[in-house]
Amino acid sequence: MQDIEQMRWAILIGTLAMLMMAFFVIAFVLFYQKRRFAEEKKLSEIEKNHGRLLLDTALHSEENERRRIAQDLHDDIGTMLSLTKLSLNQLNKAMTDRDEKEELFMKKAQSLVEETILHVRRITRELVPTTLERFGLTEAIYEFIHKLAEGNTLSISFQPGTEELPRVGQKIELAVYRIMQELVNNAIKHANCTKIDVILEMNNQFIGLQVADNGIGFDPVTIKEQHLTGLGLLGIESRLAILHGTVQYSKSGNGGSTAKILIPIDTEILSGKPEPLHPFRRERVNI
């Protein structure tokens, strides 16, 4: 009888031990899984931020390189071309008795130098949008569109949401400007369109850009799935990723495509003065 009682106790203790183990395992799985997920989330956040930082650095370097090239063009080639033009003018004045052929060569040389100066100026301005820094997004987009419309038959319209858009900081303005440039250039190159509409809107929280065309349109999903995304579209996504912005492509009502960009505005940036974007200022180097 005593043996049976002991056996019962043994079974009870064994069962209780097993049950404790079972509850411990369940609790362990729950907590361990939760902890690992938190760690994974943290790690992925770090990786994401690192990637964003790399992108930011790459784009920053690109802008710096553009400035450097623009500065070199302006300071070195621009100056040399101005001097060449001056020398040619002086030569023109010095050479009093010359025949018609020499006169023609002189005029041609002067005109070529003039044209080259204009080209260098245009390239410099394209490399660094000085209007953007001086007058803001609206003026810079107006200027860009005006220049494009000069050499093209297609009609490009621009509608700023308000008369005067507030300045939102160099980084955001430059990103919106470059994205607009890329989208308009893409529409001209690939969409086979006759009309492009650019709309820029802004409120306290977001800055929105819409570029619509009446061209052949495209399916962004197919392009992504078939890995046909070009550097342009990737560049847009990279710039947006840094600013936590989004892009949405859709088919326009008139048959073309529409790209809608939405970038959140950091209130701290909005309240502060935009950092000047001087085209010909070299980065300060501490030695």
């Binding site: 056996m7 079974i11 064994g14 069962t15 097993m18 049950l19 183990m21 079972a22 509850f23 395992v25 369940i26």
Partner: peptide, 13 residues
């Protein structure tokens, strides 16, 4: 897990 943990020592008896 809970059910079979409760069963494992009782079942032989």
């Amino acid at each position: 897990l809970v059910y079979y943990s409760s069963l494992i020592f009782i079942s032989p008896a």
